[in-house]
Amino acid sequence: MWTLVLNSGSSSLKFAVIDPASGETRISGLAERLGAEAASMRLDSDGVRQTHSLNGGSYAEAMRLVLAELDALGLRQDVRAVGHRVVHGGSRFSAPAVITPEVLEAIRECVPLAPLHNPANIAGIEAAMNAFPGLPQVAVFDTAFHQTLPEVAYRYAVPEEWYRQHGVRRYGFHGISHAFVAGEAARMLDRPVSDLNLITAHLGNGCSVSAVAGGRSVDSSMGLTPLEGLVMGTRSGNVDPGLHDYLARVSGLTLTQITAALNRESGLLALSGLTNDMRELEEAAARGHDGARLAVEIFVYRLAQGIAAMAVALGRVDGLVFTGGIGENSATVRAATLARLPFLGFRLDDAANTAAVRGQSGSISAPDSLPALVVNTNEEWMIARETAEVLSLTPR
């Protein structure tokens, strides 16, 4: 039994055909720059990579190419369901949901909470519904995992009517990844996830940390939107809320322009003046570039602060997990972060940390340390598993 997993971005469509039981991936791909002349799709199947031009293609055009590839492999008839990553489900969705007209409308109602993400998710859903009219479609929400946050963690100290009437609260994101790596960490530690208090750090272009107690999220660094929390690739993370009013008065920028800059022109990119790519920043810092060095140092400092904050939420910490593109591949970031956390009981094994950049999950902590792990996330597999579960399908 195969599940087609779709992850739709503002101008991209990532897909994979996965066996929910084993995680085996039959084919995967990424369509980028949709709507532009340079639109293209990369396909990976059986160790072979192909690239196709889409020449200004839309989500629908990308889906047509996906269908053609599935037909060429004889897979279309074996796909039993489509699972979609949806960034924001608000307070309504605490679990995956079969997509009905009512569920799709509820996702639309969450657009004001995630204007950069949910419209793209909806476009991907509509393209898939047209391409696979006979298949069940399931929405798997990044916010759902964090619906177990206690009120003390999710409420802001703002007027009650903002919360009651407009849903102003902390939601948390990257929940699909945090849930997956918490389960994998428990397996690696040979302990039930229900017995563990873990801090999970998802570090990519977007970054967040989560406190996971007994397999349930009890706090997250992200809030109402994915802008709150850690320093990220192009997102600022935490800033003084008064910044908006101040900049509007002294610069003439609108609130929309300021928010856009905090999302797309800030973070590592702004601090370094070079790039949002951590690999390039580490190389530039090693060559003596001051902006790159500062960007990496601030990234690590705020990350260590975030991890320490999650320890407060947990009370007892049984392990720390690094995941995401930076978390899985940057030995420098991991080492510098753990160097700031000896008071939590973490000590680094330098050799293991260096080896972990090769994409292998494993421990990077010294024998006398609390466990610090690198776990390769697999959001597509998690979405496939959640899709199969909500549909009560029996994986083979």
Rank of each mutant, 00 (worst) to 15 (best):
163 Y>G: 12
191 R>Q: 10
209 V>Q: 13
158 V>G: 08
203 L>N: 12
179 A>M: 08
171 Y>S: 11
212 V>A: 02
187 R>P: 03
213 A>G: 06
207 C>R: 07
190 D>P: 01
186 A>T: 09
210 S>Q: 05
175 G>P: 01
156 Y>M: 12
165 Q>H: 13
183 G>M: 03
198 L>I: 03
164 R>P: 10
208 S>Q: 14
155 R>Y: 00
175 G>D: 00
204 G>E: 04
205 N>A: 14
209 V>K: 07
183 G>N: 09
158 V>C: 10
154 Y>L: 08
187 R>V: 10
193 V>D: 05
182 A>V: 01
174 H>V: 04
158 V>H: 04
170 R>V: 02
208 S>L: 09
190 D>H: 15
194 S>C: 08
164 R>Q: 14
162 W>G: 05
208 S>R: 13
157 A>F: 11
168 V>L: 15
201 A>P: 14
161 E>C: 09
169 R>F: 02
162 W>Q: 09
156 Y>I: 12
172 G>Y: 04
218 V>L: 02
215 G>M: 01
192 P>G: 12
165 Q>S: 13
182 A>H: 01
209 V>Y: 15
189 L>N: 11
154 Y>H: 09
174 H>I: 03
212 V>W: 01
155 R>D: 04
175 G>Y: 09
154 Y>M: 04
185 A>W: 11
198 L>V: 02
215 G>Y: 00
186 A>V: 05
195 D>H: 10
173 F>M: 06
209 V>A: 15
203 L>K: 13
216 R>A: 07
